[in-house]
Design a protein around this nucleic acid. Structure first.
Length: 504
RNA sequence: GCGCCUCUAGCUCAACUGGCAGAGCAUCGGACUCUUAAUCCGCAGGUUCUGGGUUCAAGUCCCAGGGGGCGCACCA
């Protein structure tokens, strides 16, 4: 098919650059190797209250960034220079700015470094009055509508480098993400947790119910799987004596894309020896509220127009209680499969033949209740049947000690009192493996390495996993996960040679 | 994977029940010594996603394909 893909030819320069052919050829290799000594653009104006309009400060600074607005005005010119701190106005005067004519011909998006005195213009804006300047890079493409930016989602995500300049707030979101992850690490480190890195390539996928990506390890002549969780290796480290351990890392699940799902995403998993899920509840609250406090200065936020108070303690309620609140139906495993199936169909929740009572109960919860929970709420006590890695509830038969923090109608994580008994774990995995053999591609398989590790003795342990992307969505008030992942998964761009007309 | 919606200039968007494909910004040329999305004058810019069909006539209607969005399913 010979048509150009949607974005292949976009944002191309449609006419020869205003730099002119001679300048292009002359300056292509002319860019300096460094432009040292710059200050952040946003810092230039701060503390200049005493500077009167039309006055110079006597202080000379250098700034560098992209020209994003230009206002040539004859023998003077103004421009907005942006860097990742913000923006500062440049002021150029033909009589005192070197290569003035060339400067006024720069295109929106060109990178420049300038040096000059900090002044306040007659109209009152603190500016750098350009004395000398260097072109640092030219752009061959525009950055969208200078007022409205770029709205096409395909273009925004495929060309994030453009989105970052074209749309206000995008850079801030990703800086926020970076600060959130840094503060998450700091909070864990402060509590004595040690960060580790475990393998991404697994011979057997495990630690979660999900379909894996498959790859091939040539030297071993074997198929390997991209990890779907960090869980099993981290538990092996607890067995090895890492009493408090965590990993922040990329997880891969071979599933559909949605505003809340990206096939590769970031999780943090935390394991604490001698602790149970109650301890993990407290840790969850502290981490989530702590990250909010560290990044936004408050644990009371507004998400998608609705108040959201992450301040601990959070409400704790059992799955049964929450289902009953929402639907009026009393749902518990003790009712038995038949009765649960009846309730499910009454509520319009489909039941598959192979589903046991635990699966049916979870289905009812997920279809009727979860998305309605604004939270934050810790949903407590899951059916054993759907929790192969969690320890039996100490007082409720058929349940395990597991909870999920739910915020804004979404699971933010998953945590349990870990199952440490190797025999029970083997039985649970064998049930999973039977399901897998029967065609359930998300069921687990038996991981002998993990079971052997458990046989060496695992202390009582609490484990917690949090979806980092979803946490950042809350902090950034992002409706879609793509807004907090720099390069979200997209179909590959199809380009045939002749379509690359913008390269010609 | 299924359903619904969508795709028009580099960007953001118009174009009535089918009737000459347009604007703002950007780009390019010009004017301008204090602008703030500067302003003013001018040039240029299109396979209306692709391919087929209906029609005197298709951006518009129909079919197929592609990209994207949303929903369902799966999951964090």
């Amino acid at each position: 098919m010979a048509h150009a893909p949607r974005s292949a030819s976009r944002l191309r320069a449609q006419q020869p650059s205003r730099h002119g052919g001679d300048v292009v050829s002359a300056s292509a290799g002319d860019v300096p190797y460094r432009f040292p000594g710059t200050v952040p653009a946003a810092s230039v104006a701060s503390g200049r209250e005493a500077l009167a309009p039309g006055e110079g400060s006597g202080e000379v600074v250098s700034v560098a960034g992209r020209l994003m607005l230009t206002r040539p005005q004859g023998r003077v010119a103004f421009a907005e220079l942006r860097d990742w701190s913000g923006a500062v106005q440049l002021f150029a005067v033909a009589s005192s700015t070197e290569r003035f004519d060339e400067l006024t011909k720069l295109a929106l998006g060109d990178w420049v470094g300038v040096t000059g005195e900090v002044v306040r213009t007659k109209r009152g804006e603190v500016s750098v009055q350009v004395a000398s300047w260097s072109l640092l890079a030219r752009t061959r493409h525009g950055f969208g509508d200078k007022w409205r930016g770029v709205h096409d989602p395909d273009l925004r995500y495929r060309q994030r480098e453009v989105d970052l300049w074209a749309n206000e707030g995008v850079r801030e979101t990703f800086l926020l993400r970076s600060r959130a992850v840094a503060s998450l690490r700091r909070l864990l480190d402060e509590r004595g947790f040690v960060e580790v890195e475990t393998p991404v390539l697994h011979p057997t996928p495990g630690g979660a119910l999900a379909r894996p990506f498959v790859t091939h390890y040539n030297a071993l002549h074997a198929d390997y799987y991209l990890r779907i969780a960090t869980e099993l290796h981290l538990k092996r480290l607890v067995i090895g004596g890492f009493e408090r351990v965590y990993e922040v890392g990329r997880i891969f699940r071979n599933e559909g894309l949605s505003p809340r799902h990206n096939p590769e995403f970031t999780s943090v998993e935390v394991y604490q020896a001698y602790a149970d899920y109650e301890d993990m509840m407290e840790l969850t609250e502290q981490l989530v509220a702590g990250v909010a406090l560290a990044t936004l200065g408050t644990s009371r936020l507004v998400y998608q127009g609705r108040d959201l108070d992450l301040t601990p303690p959070w409400r704790r309620a059992t799955m049964s209680e929450l289902i009953e609140e929402r639907t009026g139906a009393a749902v518990a495993l003790e009712l038995g499969r038949e009765e649960l199936a009846r309730i499910a169909s009454q509520l319009g929740v489909p039941v598959a033949d192979g589903d046991g009572p635990g699966k049916i109960m979870l289905e009812i919860y997920e279809k009727t209740t979860e998305s309605e929970l604004w939270g934050p709420v810790l949903v407590v006590d899951y059916p054993l049947e759907v929790s192969p890695l969690a320890r039996d509830h100490r007082s409720k038969p058929g349940y395990v000690e597991r909870f999920e923090p739910v915020v804004a109608g979404r699971e933010l994580g998953n945590a349990f009192t870990e199952l440490t008994d190797p025999d029970e774990q083997r039985r649970r995995l064998e049930v999973q493996a039977a399901g897998h053999a029967a065609g359930d591609e998300e069921a687990m398989v038996v991981d002998e390495e993990f079971l052997r590790a458990l046989e060496h003795g695992m202390p009582p342990t609490g484990g917690l996993g949090i979806g980092v992307d979803r946490l950042v969505m809350l902090l950034a008030d992002a409706a879609a996960i793509r807004e907090v992942i720099l390069f979200p998964a997209l179909r590959p761009e199809r380009r045939s040679g002749e379509e690359d007309s913008d390269q010609a």
